[in-house]
Write a protein that binds this DNA or RNA. Structure first.
Lengths: 351, 351
DNA sequence: CTGAAAGCGCTTACAG
DNA sequence: CTGAAAGCGCTTACAG
């Protein structure tokens, strides 16, 4: 029998401690059982262990303050209890609220969520996807996915993926959790018609995003259904930020005739437009009506006057959890599933 | 020699794929070398491998699209490349900006950051600390730590911890990255004296937070140095949120005589106070002057009029990275180190 | 009900 | 310059 030559760790967080980390082996020794038995107690395979043994092992665990190392289990099972959550912009309070909802829902299922900020950048997205894969994540939630090679690869590999708010940017990407953006956009178009707004304009989000595209298309079709046409010069594309909204408004409000009403791809864009309106002394809604989207949690503080579409961010977490569960249970057809959440137009003073 | 009986994974993300994950063993086989050699190439131990072999292994890696599994390495080294970042409130844009800065700085060092939202809750903080420990994190950054048993334990275990913005809530907790809150508070006090504001009030943050406490104490001492005393009834404590600031203002502005100026523990509190001022028709700064803290990134959009203290959130990432590096290099004395960043009072119209 | 043993995917001291 | 082997901390099929 060859003697152990090496294999011990060289350094590390715990390497610096003289005592070292307490492992399952220490517990087993102290309790006078095998590590298999400790493991069974840990995993609640109680029917296979006598009550007395369970008691003894439990008390040793408590006494030693033993906590199993996640990494050991993950490697053995080739699956960790981690779920990666990719979000395009952590400073967007709407996204932060969704992330928080997902985190709570997963935690109740003893799954830990890791938050990753992709900044809408495919390379960063791929870096995080690979990261999560390397940690043997049991799933990945993509809020606002962008097309990328790494995402293609994961889709092909049938990794449990859930697309939130924005549909998968490729065919057969996976299940979707979100609202019917087209229908909501259409309702806004109808509302603009009812209000009899002449010269409507729109500042929509990135057309790479299904959510932005569908909001815009719904809006356009809502107008068209009443015979109102949208002038191409009144259609702008902007990033989903206040400053992008502001910049778009600088351009849009510099030309005559001014639009009578503007549909903004999200609330942040609307905030930016509103600032520009004040700068050039345009009253909202008397001179220009504004409609946003998302019902950003900041509205209450930043823009209690903004008419918008309330997207139920609190429901995203439970819905995402349900979809993951079906993915993990390998329910057939789940990869094509769409979990459509209710939305609701909120009419405040701006439109 | 016993035959292999088991050990194969039962299920998992990759278990569902017929092909399975490509491991270091597949690469070794295809390249006609041992897994040790592949590992050396992977880890850039180039001086120990011939150029020709490196080439061959590299091309096989590329061809097969092999990416090493993080978990394997982490378990072997008893250290992952993960750093946990605990933050008290993801929806606070100031915290989000710091988290983003830390993430960028660590990523440049090929360390991945995991964002965890503690909600200022000790139990949640402990759950995340344990989580990070289980993933063999190489370090943990705590933005706004609260006292908790788990934190005590990690401090005792000499885990690499960095305390950001708020000092460790126990003695010898670890290095600190932030500004001199006391000095900044004091300058605000002096400014109030110079402006000759009578009847100053303060709505400070949680007194469990060193940052909040020092801001308040500095402010009080700044007034006291000029012989101005702070009436106890003008001192309120509030959570660091808009709604808590609003509630405090409801109380504070309900009593006569009204305060002439209010120092708010952070900008969000100031936003809440400002809303209340509008509701009761108090002009800012004519009737009530307001001073905030942090220079929240939202100021530009939400409150371009707010006088505040600019805290250089962009510098927090690089500073945190430097401190971690010294912790990892086991530099002596680093656990007592304080990395003090520059701050600057920003005088806008509110005070 | 319990244990000995294999093995998850890596890294590295040792021996050539 | 390279490989065989040990081992990181777990889980679990198999044998009792």
């Amino acid at each position: 029998m060859p003697r152990p030559q090496n294999g011990g760790p060289i350094r590390g967080v715990r390497g610096s401690r003289p005592s070292g980390k307490v492992t399952i082996e220490h517990v087993a020794e102290k309790a006078g059982v095998s590590i298999a038995t400790v493991s069974r107690v840990l995993n609640g395979i109680d029917k296979k262990v006598s009550g007395e043994t369970i008691e003894r092992v439990r008390s040793v665990i408590a006494e030693m303050g033993y906590r199993p190392t996640r990494v050991g289990r993950a490697l053995r099972r080739l699956e960790s209890h981690l779920v990666g959550m990719l979000i395009p912009d952590t400073t967007n309070a709407f996204y932060a609220a969704i992330a928080h909802s997902v985190e709570s829902a997963l935690r109740a299922d003893s799954t830990a969520m890791i938050l990753c900020n992709t900044a809408e950048n495919p390379a960063v997205q791929d870096a995080y996807l690979e990261e999560m894969e390397g940690h043997l994540a049991r799933g990945i939630a993509l809020l606002g996915a962008v097309p990328s090679p790494g995402l293609e690869r994961l889709v092909a590999a049938a990794t449990p993926l859930v697309f939130i708010n924005r549909k998968p940017p490729m065919a057969g990407g996976g299940p979707f959790v979100g609202i019917d953006n087209y229908a909501a956009g259409r309702e806004i178009g109808q509302h603009f018609v009812e209000r009899n707004y002449q010269r409507c304009a729109v500042i929509h989000g990135p057309s790479g995003s299904s959510a932005s595209r569908e909001r815009f298309e719904g809006f356009r079709d809502g107008l068209a259904a009443a015979g109102v046409r949208l002038d191409d010069r009144g259609v702008h594309e902007a990033a989903l930020t206040m400053s992008a909204g502001y910049s778009a408004a600088v351009e849009l409000l510099d030309r005559q005739p001014l639009p009578r009403a503007i549909f903004c791809g999200n609330d942040l864009i609307a905030y930016g437009v509103h600032r520009r309106c004040r700068e050039v002394n345009l009253r909202v809604p008397a001179d220009v009506a504004l409609f946003g989207f998302d019902d950003n949690p900041l509205n209450e503080w930043l823009a209690p006057w903004l008419s918008t579409v309330h997207v139920p961010y609190d429901q995203f977490g439970p819905a995402t959890q349900r979809v993951f569960q079906r993915l993990w249970d390998a329910k057939p057809g789940i990869r094509q599933h769409q979990e459509l959440l209710p939305y609701r137009l909120v009419f405040r003073s701006s439109a």
